[in-house]
Design a protein around this nucleic acid. Structure first.
Lengths: 196, 196
DNA sequence: GACCGTCTCTACCAAATGGTAGAGAAACTT
DNA sequence: AAGTTTCTCTACCATTTGGTAGAGACGGTC
């Protein structure tokens, strides 16, 4: 029952457990059982739990950066590009909600790693902001506070993807359909704010 | 060093620790030290950690329901009332960010309690939706999907209040000022969608 | 065949944590 | 004054958890 190398399987199993049960509530044994190896095999590949956590988070951040970058670059200019970016950020949230839940625990677990992730993401955001402002200058988008819009959009994604209780209180069952509705609403808002 | 009764002080200290460090990462000893009593005093007032957690969450939910309810009822009709509701939901998030962080852990820790909280909040939301729709019927608000707007608004609050990493990636330092900016943006959106 | 690096395993340990047992103090009741 | 209730404390325990030590298996290389 292998296929993929052990290290890879550990990372995937760990992401799954961390995301659904939380990092603290996940023991190394839980992960090891899921992979089908002994706990000590984990500690061979990652010298400590913290190192495993960091590796998982690093991979998640990498995937996100790559995916969003690619989606954006392949879209035409103007508002369509904004739409592509939003959709790209929603995609991982829909496919693996566990993923976003992890970012939440980052600060508490390792402020240094949080700093690293911020350093990693910020250039991407800066690029997006610069792009939006250039488009505004060129008259292809209406003028607005691009940075504020990004914060607004991202907080929406994260909030809804990791807060099933809230969704249910509003009368929706958590799931892909709800996320899609919210994405549509968010895009409508951005279009109203930006589309020339 | 008392004033307030022990039970009360335990609840407050616990909320603080749970919110900032997470429930799992908070030991009964941590809370007891903060209050200035022995760990066993906690277990006298709450027979188990789970019971303490539930008590804390119950209190949080109660406060929120009461506060939002009062703020809304005392505001004039029309969009001003929507504004009052949003501000009321933001207020606890600003004053005690720990609070919202807790809701997140709800599902994992105790699905039954999560259900209870949902049952408690849903009528409030239903009331708000009914109010919005009545206002729409009366022509004082523009017609829109009220439930969708509530989900959108709430996810924004939660997302931003509990996601310092994301805020920093966007280029803001987490804090009251950032939350205020986002509240303003959210209100502008709602006004555009609703104001007649 | 001897050697070596890679990988996984079976014990084992020290620390932390939630929880129990039961005693002592203080205040109230009778 | 005696008894009872309320509240907080000092030990103590069982379990879990991250981590260590070290051995065995397997494949390639000399």
């Amino acid at each position: 029952m292998s296929g993929k190398p052990t290290r890879e399987r550990i990372l995937e199993e760990a992401l799954d457990h961390f995301g659904t049960s939380g990092i603290d509530a996940t023991s190394l044994d839980d992960i090891a059982r899921g992979v089908g190896v002994a706990k000590q095999t984990l500690l061979y590949w990652f010298t400590s739990k913290e190192e495993l956590v960091i590796a998982v988070l690093q991979r998640v951040a990498d995937e996100l950066v790559v995916e969003v970058g690619a989606a954006v670059r392949s879209a035409p200019h103007g508002f369509a590009r904004v739409e592509a970016a939003v959709t790209a950020v929603f995609r991982p949230a829909v496919r693996r909600p566990a993923l976003l839940g992890l970012v939440r625990e980052l600060n508490r677990l390792s402020p240094e790693l949080a700093d690293a992730v911020v350093l990693r993401m910020k250039p991407l955001v800066d690029l997006a902001v610069a792009y939006l402002e250039a488009e505004m200058d060129a008259g292809r988008l209406r003028r607005a506070d691009a940075r504020l819009l990004m914060a607004f959009a991202y907080s929406t994604v994260v909030g809804v993807a990791t807060e099933p209780v809230a969704l249910r209180a509003v009368g929706w069952e958590p799931g892909v359909a709800s996320l899609r509705k919210l994405r549509a609403e968010l895009l409508a808002f951005l279009r109203a704010a930006l589309a020339a």
